[in-house]
């Protein structure tokens, strides 16, 4: 009896998630006439992807990857030390610091983006990849710090102390014990920073006009089009390009999601 219910609910969940995604991906390859008439397309084509490349979506894709990588680099360099400190040391102000970081996490991006756009125009960072990466770093930094603190915090203390007792320096303990043990979690943190950047829209739109990242480019009028609208399957091609890498990353990150979201309790 219980097994039947588990089976039914599992099937519902699987359908709820996979049907929309699969159908979108399928539609992005559907022949146009076919798409408007049949539930399951019979003829398939790559023309939307090809056309997209001509419209500059390929470049937007490259920009998205570059911004994502820049975001990883910046947020790791800046955020990992803080994550280590919070996960490893007990110091005055640690709790208020955590609370402040939590607060940064929920600051509306719109508030940050508009003034920064004005500033970036003045200093020449507007519409540049660095400019977007800078704000994406600001957005992902709270996540990086809190996740890293939980990753470092879960490296048992006595493993490090054993290192000190047997004569290692602080740096040696870090390199030989702490980092190898924390590595999988740190990798997940990096991927998560990338995902945040890859998926971020508001700041990307506001801080750029021509050099847009993928989701921002997809949102521009001539793609989404309120006037000379492109046929639907184009949109699905864009969706497929955005969704596929994200779903693959998720496969790796998923074990760490509880640390990223759950452990950040406001208590």
């Amino acid at each position: 009896m219980r097994r039947v219910w588990v089976f039914i609910i599992s099937m519902l969940i699987i359908a709820w998630i996979t049907v929309p995604i699969t159908y979108t991906i399928l539609s992005s390859f559907a022949d146009l006439v076919d798409y408007y008439e049949n539930v399951l397309p019979r003829r398939y084509t790559l023309r939307y992807y090809e056309e997209y490349l001509r419209l500059g979506v390929g470049e937007a894709l490259v920009r998205s990857v570059l911004v994502g990588i820049l975001t990883i680099i910046l947020s790791m360099i800046i955020g990992l030390p803080a994550g280590y400190a919070i996960g490893r040391y007990v110091f005055r102000g640690r709790d208020s610091l955590k609370l402040a970081i939590l607060f940064f996490k929920v600051i509306p991006i719109a508030i940050m983006a508009v003034p920064l756009a004005v500033l970036f125009i003045r200093v020449g960072l507007y519409d540049t990849l660095i400019g977007i990466a800078l704000i994406h770093t600001a957005i992902s930094l709270p996540f990086v710090v809190l996740t890293a603190s939980s990753v470092f915090g879960s490296v048992p203390r006595d493993l490090e102390e054993a290192g000190y007792v047997f004569g290692m320096s602080g740096l040696q303990v870090m390199l030989r014990i702490t980092l190898p043990l924390a590595a999988p979690g740190i990798a997940a943190t990096a991927l998560f920073a990338f995902l945040i950047s890859w998926n971020e829209i508001v700041a990307a739109i506001i801080l750029s006009s021509f050099n847009r990242t993928l989701p921002a480019a997809v949102m521009t009028p001539y793609v989404m089009g309120t006037g000379g609208e492109l046929p639907d399957p184009y949109k699905f091609a864009a969706t497929t390009i955005m969704v596929t890498p994200a779903l693959i990353f998720m496969l790796y990150i998923r074990r760490y999601l509880i640390a990223m979201w759950g452990a950040a309790g406001v208590r």
Partner: peptide
Amino acid sequence: FQSYAVWP
């Protein structure tokens, strides 16, 4: 160590 602290 009580937990042994054998590096995993």
